[in-house]
């Protein structure tokens, strides 16, 4: 009341417009992460468990909030007088001690029984992911494999079966998280952690590093492509093959540039001289959906932009920018890389 009479203008204007702004913000942020990176857009068994827990807790919180505020309202407006001890004491003990203890214990038991499911054993496929600054080293180990299929910055999974992830990190802590498929798991240097996911819908979902890991942490993401099992097998078989030789003059010039510029010191292109281990494996980089761990798309222009402006796109990135190359040379490199399908 006093605030009202002192400053009626801000109350009158600020109130509703602020509320509208809040609703607007909520709508835009919700729709922005809409389907591709949201725990609430459930696309896997593990995300479903987390979403259920979330909705139950939200509903419970709403009920509690209404109940508590209802009580406040009742006690301050409807019946502001003193209450007899005989009434207050059971309410205090029941509502203040017994009820929260029972609710918290139930939630604790429920969530603790959920935890082992999120680490259930795999149905045959293991993927080893190492967090690098600021990209993901990925190895597929199908059942019985003696050597892994190495790739980077993208994860493909068969729908309907459980894939195990062995997580590790190089130098600093990262966290592996595909919200639409399940919970997050931290990655520690020198220690392997494990999480497993069972996608239930095909589609493309976004993963994101969820532990601050340096200048380009926010740019450390990846695409997750969930495929029908047969498509997955076909993709994995293709991914295991050596790189396709360059086709066409531009791509051949690009391959020569790749060798001359020393890209192979950091990158591997299987079936060529390039065997570097510092950066992502580029054997099939042409079939990736993004470049630079989800930083930009993967068109010819994106390839050229990445090579020319690496550090501008990702601060402190461990790859030099090749801005001395001419537009023609960049186009040739792009043609070569895009051809590595």
């Amino acid at each position: 009341m006093t605030a009202m009479s002192r400053d009626p203008v801000t109350i009158g204007r600020g109130g509703p417009s602020r509320a509208i702004f809040a609703v607007f913000l909520l709508c835009t942020t919700l729709s922005a992460c809409g389907d591709r990176q949201s725990t609430l857009n459930v696309a896997g068994e593990d995300a479903a468990a987390i979403a259920t827990l979330f909705w139950v807790m939200l509903a419970g919180a709403v009920v509690l909030w209404l109940g508590m505020n209802g009580l406040f309202f009742y006690l301050s407006r409807v019946a502001p007088g003193a209450f007899p001890d005989r009434l207050v004491r059971p309410l205090l003990i029941g509502g203040g001690i017994v009820l929260p203890t029972v609710i918290l214990a139930t939630l604790l038991v429920w969530s603790l029984t959920m935890l082992p499911d999120q680490r259930a054993p795999d149905d045959g496929l293991r993927v080893k992911v190492t967090g690098e600054q600021w990209w993901w080293r990925v190895e597929y180990w199908p059942k019985g494999a003696e050597a892994p299929v190495v790739t980077a910055n993208e994860i493909r999974l068969p729908v309907g079966s459980r894939t195990g992830f062995e997580l590790d990190a190089h130098k600093v802590i990262h966290s592996f998280w595909i919200p639409a498929l399940g919970g997050k798991m931290d990655m520690f240097p020198g220690r392997t952690t494990y999480v497993s996911l069972r996608p239930e819908k095909t589609g493309t979902f976004r993963g994101q590093c969820a532990e601050f890991c340096g200048a380009s942490h926010a740019w450390m993401a990846f695409e997750t492509v969930v495929l029908p099992p047969d498509d997955f097998e076909a993709w994995l078989a293709a991914e295991a093959r050596d790189a396709t030789p360059p086709e066409g003059d531009a791509a051949r010039r690009g391959a020569a540039l790749f060798a001359a510029e020393g890209c192979g010191a950091c990158h591997t292109v299987r079936g060529t001289e390039a065997v570097g281990q510092v950066g992502p494996d580029l054997t099939h980089v042409g079939s990736r959906l993004t470049l630079g761990a989800g930083r930009i798309g993967a068109t010819l222009d994106d390839f050229a932009a990445w090579v020319e402006h690496t550090g501008a796109l990702k601060p402190e990135v461990k790859m030099p920018a090749y801005d001395h190359l001419s537009d023609g040379q960049l186009a040739d490199l792009a043609a070569y890389l895009k051809g590595l399908e």
């Binding site: 214990a105 604790l108 603790l112 935890l115 082992p116």
Partner: peptide, 22 residues
């Protein structure tokens, strides 16, 4: 003592429900 009892029960629940080191 009541709150300590509840506290110990809550700390013990993970022991009962989670078995391994993971």
């Amino acid at each position: 003592a009541v709150i300590s009892f509840i506290g110990v029960v809550f700390v013990t629940l993970p022991l009962l429900l989670l078995e391994g080191c993971r």
